[in-house]
């Protein structure tokens, strides 16, 4: 199916700035879904609030655009109501890990089958450039005019510690890898996390003198490296890309079927 068939043209023009990474993420996601041969009816997209969360409106799936930070909590109810569907939850770094951080770690801990995409632009785009929990020490933001002294999360480490059974990281420069990560994440039977470093030239880029969108993508090219590469050993500051975790653990909705079986056995005994 051509890419445009996945898109709700009625929603266009989109609200993203020129050069914003979020459109690249949307493109890679469509290509992953297309490659998997999933029908539009098999996909539910649940999102919160932010520039990144707007993806849900633009795509012709079952789409639920909710409130800031709570997408995974809504998605949990949707998934338990409809265990057979594929749930994809696109989130910004603030949406997923500031206001939504608690829901994130608990969804990961439950290992409920859904794909959390964290579009990490290290800033609050939608509200105009305030620092996020991913901005990192020493960065600048509209609410950190002198310097940000908050330390950043490592999304991959956080996800692993919280119990996610699929964890990957990629960037908007590495679209092939991104598509591949999405494909595997969607197929994964459990809670999957894909962190995508996605540029916000308008706020993070401008505030931190990162140059144009293309410059920011070149930065992703030059400052990341495949997991366990030789380059990483030589330069520990490089950010690793790839699939960090992919393991099988009981999935929440399937485990709940066991609960129902047990309860029914008990119910009959009185």
């Amino acid at each position: 199916m051509p890419v445009k068939d996945y898109i709700r043209e009625r929603f266009f023009p989109h609200l993203w700035c020129p050069g914003c990474g979020h459109g690249i993420v949307m493109n890679a996601l469509i290509r992953a879904i297309e490659a998997l041969g999933l029908s539009k009816n098999e996909i539910v997209m649940v999102s919160g609030i932010g520039c990144s969360s707007r993806i849900s409106g633009y795509l012709d799936f079952h789409t639920l655009h909710t409130i800031h930070g709570r997408a995974l909590a809504f998605a949990t109810g949707v998934k338990m109501g409809l265990p057979e569907l594929n749930i994809i939850v696109p989130m910004g770094d603030g949406d997923a890990l500031a206001i939504g951080g608690n829901h994130f770690i608990h969804a990961a801990r439950r290992n409920i089958e859904m794909t959390a995409i964290i579009m990490n632009n290290r800033i609050y785009g939608m509200t105009g450039g305030q620092y996020s929990p991913l901005s990192g020490y020493g960065t600048l933001a509209t609410t950190a005019p002198y310097m940000n002294i908050d330390h950043a999360f490592d999304v991959v480490q956080l996800s692993i510690a919280a119990g996610a059974t699929f964890v990957a990281r990629t960037t908007t420069y590495h679209v092939q890898q991104m598509t591949d990560c999405f494909k595997k994440a969607i197929l994964h039977e459990g809670f999957s996390v894909v962190e995508v470093l996605s540029q916000c030239p308008t706020y993070f880029g401008r505030k931190n003198k990162m140059g144009s969108a293309a410059d920011m993508m070149a930065f992703y090219r030059d400052h990341t490296t495949p997991i366990g590469s030789k380059k990483k050993k030589e330069n520990p500051d490089l950010i690793e890309r790839g699939i960090f975790v992919q393991k099988d653990l009981p999935e929440y909705c399937r485990a709940y079927d066991t609960v129902i079986e047990r309860a029914k056995g008990k119910g009959q005994k009185g």
């Binding site: 649940v46 639920l64 909710t66 409130i67 709570r70 909590a73 809504f74 998605a75 949990t76 109810g77 949707v78 998934k79 338990m80 109501g81 409809l82 608690n102 829901h103 608990h106």
Partner: peptide
């Protein structure tokens, strides 16, 4: 994990 999530989850399930 909290009441916010509880309220969100029931809305999601109701919709289905």
């Amino acid at each position: 994990e909290d009441e916010i999530a509880s309220m969100c989850a029931i809305i999601g399930a109701s919709l289905t």
